[in-house]
Structure formats: C-alpha cells, structure tokens
Amino acid sequence: MNGFFDLPSDLQYSYAGLVGLHLREALIPVLAGLVIALPLAQLCVRFRWVYPPVLGLTTVLYSIPSLAFFVVLIDYFGQSETTVMIPLGVYSLVVLVPGIVDGVRSVPRETLAAAEAMGFGPLRRYLQVQLPIAAPAIIAGLRVAVISSLSLVSVGMLIGNQGALGNMLYDASTYHLPLLAVNSVLTTAVLGILADALLVLVRRLLTPWMPRKGAAR
C-alpha cells in the first residue's frame, strides 16, 4: 500500500526526514539573519545617516529572485544546502532590519530620558529598555521572515534537489503524482502556520505589558 506519507525511494529521505531538513534549511538562515540584523539595526538607530544606504542596499538585494541568487552561488558553494541558505539569510536580514529599527525608534523619548536620568549606561539601556520594547516589532519581522523562508526552501529543488520538501515536487512532476505535490504544499504550509502560531505565542509570553487588541497581522 502506498500511503500518503510514504515517499518514493529516490528522495533518499523519509517524510519526517524531509520535514527536519526543511526546517533546518529555512530556520538557520532566519537565525543568522537575526544575529546580523540586531547590531546592524542598532547601528542604523545610533547613526541616522547609515539607515538610508542600508535600506537601499537591502531593497536591491530583496528584488533579486531567489532562483537567480541560488544559481550564482552554485559557483562558490556547489549544489548544496549552503547555497540555498545564504539567499534566505539575506532575505531575512532585509525583512528584519527595518522592523527592528522602527521598533527601537518607537521607544518613547520620555522613557529613554527617564532611563538616562536613572543612570542606565548605553548597554543596559539597550538590553533592558530598547530591546524589550522593540520585541513585538522584532517578532513581527521574524514571522514574515520565517514564513517566507519556509516557502522559498522549496525552490532549492531546482538546484540539484536541495529543496527538502520541495524535492517531492520533482518526483510529483516526473512521475505525475499530484498527491505528492499536494503533500509537499500542504506540509510546507502547515509548517509555516505552526511556526507563525509559535511566534505569536512567544510574543504573548514576552509582552504581557502590551494592551490586548484584536489585530490582523
């Protein structure tokens, strides 16, 4: 019997294996993007003149189609996971930086003045005041980055089957198995929705201080 979750053997992975691979290929870049975005955003907040060029550069990077990005990187990293993950990291960075900058800038001036007057140093002010207050903006950025990253991994199928769940699409077209494509699409979508829900939960836990309101985001 060919069950929904039994995959053709040429995929070289079980269903669960592909899910794990997909998560890894999608989430490591977002994490890397966040690690770079935090200091970069702080730089943009500290030195206002840095922000416009950073914004311009990230806008240009974002407009490059993922597939082209992958192909160019093949020369340097071969048909590998790294080749897929670098563009995803760049896209995450692009999504996160403006969100974090706006979040940190949204800290009211009175709050910063109060912190300064109580003798908070710059590092303490960043960690204990700016970062917590920017947390909702950072998580909003993470939600967009995670969901688009999960979706884009599939395209990696085109560069030598590096697309995790996307690799099912290759078999689906080659052997004409629409169900396999349905499986790939739905699994990716469910992963995206679950990750999104998880991030919403994290935000709720991190920000008991926010007024509750029903907002579409």
Binding site: P108, T111, A113, A114, A115, V129, P132, T207, W209
Partner: peptide
C-alpha cells in the same frame, strides 16, 4: 518628567 516616562514593559 511629563508623561512619567514609565517603562511600558515593566
């Protein structure tokens, strides 16, 4: 200060 400048997250 005016508007208190409280830490909204605490």
């Amino acid at each position: 200060i005016q508007n208190a400048g409280l830490f909204q997250h605490r």
